[in-house]
Amino acid sequence: MPRTMNPSDMHDKKKEVPNSQYARTIPCNQLSVSAPFHWLSLGLHDLIRMPIISAFYGLCFMAAAISIVLLIQWQGTHLVVMPALVVYMLIGPFLALGLYDASWEREQGKDASLWHSMKAIGRNSTSQWAFVVLLTVAMIFWMRIAALLHVFYPSVQGAPLGDFLPFLVIGTIVGAVIAAIIFSISAFSIPLMMEKNVDMMSAVFTSFNAVKSNIPAMIVWAAIISGGILIGFATYGVGMLVTMPILGYGTWHAYHATIKREEDI
Rank of each mutant, 00 (worst) to 15 (best):
R261E: 14
N197T: 02
M143Q: 04
F131H: 12
A120Q: 09
G92M: 14
I225A: 09
T251Y: 03
L90G: 08
A146G: 02
N197I: 02
N209R: 15
Q75G: 09
A23W: 02
F205E: 05
L95M: 15
Q21W: 12
G239L: 06
S184M: 06
T25K: 13
P166A: 04
V204Q: 01
L97H: 09
P83F: 00
V81H: 00
F141T: 05
H256E: 10
Y255I: 01
H78A: 04
I181H: 06
L161S: 11
A217E: 10
F208Y: 14
M244Q: 15
M5N: 12
W221R: 02
D12G: 04
Y236T: 11
A96T: 15
A203W: 01
D12Y: 11
I72L: 01
V211R: 06
S113I: 06
H253E: 02
D199P: 01
V80H: 01
Q75T: 12
F188H: 14
I68Q: 01
I121S: 07
F188C: 07
S202M: 02
T4R: 11
P36C: 05
A254W: 03
I68A: 03
G250R: 01
F131D: 08
I185K: 07
L247K: 01
P216Y: 14
T235I: 10
I185V: 15
R106P: 05
T136E: 00
E195T: 11
Y57K: 11
F56Q: 05
S20V: 09
G122R: 09
A65F: 01
I185F: 15
F37S: 08
D12Q: 12
M193W: 02
I190R: 02
G98C: 08
V80L: 00
I68E: 00
A120N: 08
M200D: 05
M89G: 07
M10K: 08
S34W: 10
P216C: 08
S207C: 08
W129T: 08
T251R: 02
R144V: 15
G158S: 10
R106K: 13
I182M: 13
L161R: 12
R49N: 10
I170W: 03
L31A: 06
L247N: 02
W252R: 14
M218Q: 15
A23N: 12
M143Y: 02
V133M: 02
L241P: 10
R123M: 11
V87Q: 00
L148E: 09
A222Y: 07
M244T: 14
W129Y: 15
M118I: 15
T243N: 02
M50V: 02
E263S: 15
T25L: 08
G175L: 00
P245L: 05
V156R: 10
A257H: 15
D101S: 14
L31G: 06
L95S: 11
I173E: 06
